[in-house]
Amino acid sequence: MTFETLKPEIKSIVSNADYTTDERLLKICELLEANVDYYNWVGFYFKNGDKNELKLGPYVGEPTDHTIIPFGKGICGQVAVSNENFVVPDVSAQDNYIACSITVKAEIVIPIFVNGENIGQIDIDSNTPDPFTEADERFLEFVCAEVASLL
């Protein structure tokens, strides 16, 4: 499936009031992981209340010990501070990287904004070196905007 064909699927999941917010987020993770070959771990992190840390939300992929990430630590923690997309073509070249699995080669993290505030992010790990393009960034920005409408 192409990103363009996935967009209506994302909209359909987001608008389905039969599911809780977490169920919808999980369905988005499942859809992305199943339909984009190089998306090997897909999950959401959200700001943990008033704390300067992120808390793991719904995800699909290998289990992770990183359920809480302090702001500034790792790729996700850096996005929580910078409020900017972060594409990492080669995680081994990053000094401030938290390894979740030895199979991960690349990562992309896109922030989610609600009323101008960075309240979380989508985090995708890939076992393929340097797979993410500008098309991934634009598509994931679309996903994050749709998710923001839920929150």
Results as ranks from 00 to 15, higher is better:
Gln121Val: 05
Ser92His: 06
Ser126Asn: 09
Asp123Ala: 01
Ile98Val: 13
Ile102Asp: 14
Asn127Phe: 09
Thr133Ile: 05
Ile110Arg: 07
Gly120Ile: 07
Asn115Tyr: 09
Asn115Val: 06
Phe139Thr: 01
Leu140Pro: 02
Ala145Ile: 10
Gln94Met: 12
Phe113His: 15
Ala148His: 14
Glu107Gly: 05
Asp136Gly: 03
Thr128Glu: 13
Glu117Cys: 10
Phe113Ser: 09
Ser101Pro: 00
Val143Cys: 05
Phe139Trp: 00
Ile122Gln: 02
Asp95Arg: 12
Thr133Arg: 03
Asp136Tyr: 03
Val109Arg: 00
Thr103Lys: 11
Gln94Arg: 04
Ala135Asn: 12
Gln121Tyr: 06
Gly116Trp: 15
Ser149Tyr: 11
Ile110Tyr: 03
Ser101Leu: 09
Ala93Cys: 15
Gly116Met: 06
Ile98Arg: 15
Ile98Asp: 03
Asp95His: 11
Val114Asp: 15
Asn115Gly: 11
Cys144Arg: 07
Asp123Asn: 03
Thr103Gly: 07
Arg138Trp: 01
Glu107Asn: 04
Thr133Met: 12
Phe113Asp: 07
Thr133Tyr: 04
Pro131Gly: 03
Phe139Pro: 00
Thr128Pro: 07
Phe139Ile: 00
Phe142His: 08
Val104Lys: 00
Ala99Met: 10
Glu134Phe: 01
Asn118Pro: 09
Asp130Arg: 04
Val104Trp: 00
Val143Asp: 07
Thr128Ala: 06
Glu137Met: 02
Pro129Asp: 11
Ile112Cys: 05
Val104Gly: 02
Arg138Gln: 13
Leu140Gln: 01
Ser126Phe: 00
Ser149Asn: 10
Ala93Arg: 12
Ile98Ala: 10
Phe113Pro: 04
Cys100Ser: 07
Phe142Pro: 04
Asn115Thr: 08
Gly120Val: 10
Ser92Arg: 08
Ala99Val: 10
Gln94Trp: 00
Glu137Trp: 01
Gly116Leu: 10
Ala93Pro: 01
Ala106Glu: 00
Ser92Val: 13
Ile122Cys: 06
Glu141Ile: 03
Pro131Gln: 06
Ala99Lys: 15
Thr128Gln: 15
Val104Pro: 00
Pro111Asp: 10
Lys105Val: 08
Thr133Cys: 03
Glu146Gln: 14
Ile102Trp: 15
Cys100Pro: 00
Cys144Ala: 14
Gln121Gly: 04
Pro129His: 06
Phe113Arg: 13
Phe142Asn: 09
Pro131Asn: 13
Ala99Pro: 12
Thr103Pro: 06
Ser101Arg: 08
Ala99Ile: 11
Asp95Met: 09
Ala106Tyr: 02
Val147Glu: 02
Ala135Met: 11
Pro129Met: 14
Thr128Asp: 12
Pro131Phe: 06
Phe139His: 05
Gln121Arg: 01
Gly120Ala: 08
Asp136Asn: 08
Glu107Lys: 05
Asp136Cys: 05
Asn96Lys: 07
Ala135Leu: 08
Glu141Asn: 06
Val104Phe: 04
Ile102Met: 10
Ser101Met: 03
Pro131Trp: 00
Ala106Gln: 02
Ile112Met: 12
Ile98Gln: 01
Ile98His: 02
Glu141Tyr: 03
Ile108Lys: 07
Val109Cys: 07
Leu140Phe: 14
Tyr97Thr: 03
Gly120Glu: 11
Phe113Trp: 09
Asp130Gly: 10
Phe132Lys: 01
Thr133Ala: 05
Ala93Trp: 02
Ser149Pro: 08
Asp95Lys: 12
Val109Asp: 02
Ile119Asn: 05
Glu146Gly: 09
Ile102Leu: 13
Ile122Thr: 12
Ile124Tyr: 03
Thr128Ile: 12
Glu117Lys: 15
Thr103Cys: 12
Ser126Thr: 11
Ala106Ser: 13
